[in-house]
Design a binder for these strands. Structure first.
Lengths: 228, 228
DNA sequence: TGCCAACTGCTTTTTCGTAAGCATATCTGC
DNA sequence: GCAGATATGCTTACGAAAAAGCAGTTGGCA
C-alpha cells in the first residue's frame, strides 16, 4: 500500500504528533526526510491522503491528521504499557468513532438558490453525521442551506445538507451543481439530450435549463440535519 | 492539525475550564498568550472551531466549549472524577480516540398525525445525533415520522426527529403531544386559557382543540435527521 | 443607557503550501 | 533488456494562510 518514503513520512508525522501534538510543516518534513525541496513532501502527502492514511485541510498550515496507521506500525508505535492498562474512567473512555456510528464532516460553507456559493473550498466548522447516512464509497462533505428554494422538498433555510461527492446524477436527484463554473446551487436535476434542467422545489423559482457542458455536478444529496 | 499558537490557546482554554469551569474571555486569552490585540484570539478561535476542537455560540460571552482534545493532550487532562477501570491492553483499540460531537439516541418508534403512536416505549434501534443538537439538560429520544402532517414545516415522511423530554412548551413550538392519554402526535402547539390547539403543518389537516387537561406534552422537537 | 465582550476591516510581515518543469531512479510486463 | 508507468529529487516562483497589530462597530446584558 505504501512506499518506503511514504511510510517514513507517515512515521515521522506520527512521531511529531505524539510528541508535541502539532503536526510538522512541509519544511520540517523536508528536513526530517533529508530532502532539499518541499515538492517531494507535497507529493508524498497527497499520496498518503489518497490512500486514506491522513486527512487534511487544503491550504491550511499544519492541518494534517492521521486517520489510521498501517498494521505493521501499530505494534511499532510503542505502547510500552502493553499489558493491562489502567485508564481513568468517566468520560475519558470516549468510544471510538465507528462504535458510536458517527463521523465528523467538514461544513464547506453555505449554498443558496441562484446565488453564488459563499465558499465551497473553505471549511467553516465540523458537524457530526450518523454513519448510516454515509455510503462507504466516496467522499462526503456538508453545506449549510441558505434560502427557501428547496422548501417543498423539506429543505429549509439553515438546514445542513450532507453531500456525497460525485460527478454524475440520475434524473430527479437533488444535487449540488456548479453552473458556468462559478455558481453552485442545490437543485433537482433533469437531463435530456445535452440539455440539463435545474429545478428548485419552490414554485417561486423557475426551472432553469442549460447546455450540459455548462453544468457540473459536484455531489448529490444524501442526508439532512436540522437543529431547532 | 493545529499550529502551535492554536494548540497553546486550546491548552489555555482547557486549563481554565478545568480550573474554574468558566471559559476565559477574549481579553483573558489575549493576556495569556501575550498578545496586544484580541483580533488574533478571534482568528485562533475561528481556526479551532473550523478544525472541530471547540464549539461555540456566536455573539455570546464566554460561550466556548471544548469538543475534543488533540491526542497527546488526552493523557494530561486528568478527570478528577474517575473510577479506575482496567482495560485489556494488547491491540489498544483505535489509538486516536477522538471525542466526537455525537451521541447515540434510542429511536422509540414512529409517530404520525392523528394516528396512535406505534410504540413510544419500545426502542427499535439507535441513531447517532450531533451533540450540538442536544441541550445539556434533559433526556432526549428520537422518533421516526410517519405521514405528511408536518410537511410544511419541512418534516417529511420517514424523517427522524429528535425530541427533548419536557412537560411544557411555548406557543408555536412543535411538540410530541399525548392526547386523551393514548394518541401521540407531532404538532405545533398553541395554548389559550385552558384550551390547547394542536396544529398540523399541512392544510389538509384541521387544527384540533382540546381542553388543556386532555393534552400532555411529552417533549419538544429539537432536531431532525433525514437520509436519502 | 452604557459597559463589556465579541466581531470586522485593514495592514504588514512571516511562514507555509502549491504548482510547473525537468532530471533520475525503480519497477513491471512484454 | 526495453518501454512506459511510477516514484522521487531538485529548483524556482507564486499565492495563500498564520499571526500580530490597531481601530472601529455591533450586540448582550444589567
Amino acid at each position: 500500500m505504501l512506499t518506503k518514503k511514504q511510510l517514513a513520512l507517515l512515521e515521522f508525522i506520527h512521531k511529531r504528533l505524539q510528541q508535541d501534538g502539532v503536526p510538522p510543516s512541509f519544511d520540517e518534513m523536508k528536513t526530517a526526510l533529508d530532502l532539499r525541496s518541499k515538492s517531494g513532501i507535497h507529493r508524498l502527502i497527497t499520496a498518503l491522503e489518497e490512500r486514506g492514511f491522513i486527512r487534511r485541510l487544503a491550504h491550511r498550515a499544519r492541518a494534517i491528521e492521521i486517520v489510521r496507521l498501517p498494521e505493521n506500525m501499530m505494534a511499532a508505535s510503542d505502547q510500552p504499557d502493553f499489558s493491562p492498562e489502567v485508564i481513568q474512567g468517566g468520560k475519558k473512555s470516549a468510544p471510538p468513532v465507528e462504535m458510536i456510528g458517527a463521523m465528523e464532516l467538514p461544513v464547506m460553507g453555505r449554498i443558496a438558490a441562484g446565488v453564488p456559493i459563499e465558499a465551497i473550498s473553505q471549511v467553516s466548522h465540523q458537524v457530526a453525521v450518523p454513519t448510516a447516512m454515509l455510503s462507504s464509497a466516496g467522499q462526503h462533505f456538508a453545506l449549510e442551506v441558505k434560502g427557501d428554494s428547496m422548501i417543498n422538498a423539506g429543505i429549509n433555510d439553515g438546514d445542513v445538507v450532507v453531500i456525497r461527492e460525485c460527478a454524475t446524477a440520475d434524473n430527479g436527484e437533488i444535487v449540488v451543481a456548479l453552473v458556468e463554473g462559478q455558481e453552485a446551487t442545490l437543485k433537482r436535476i433533469y437531463k435530456s439530450g445535452n440539455r440539463i434542467t435545474l429545478e428548485a422545489e419552490n414554485p417561486n423559482y423557475e426551472p432553469r435549463e442549460y447546455p450540459a457542458s455548462l453544468v457540473q455536478v459536484q455531489g448529490k444529496l444524501v442526508g439532512l440535519i436540522r437543529s431547532y
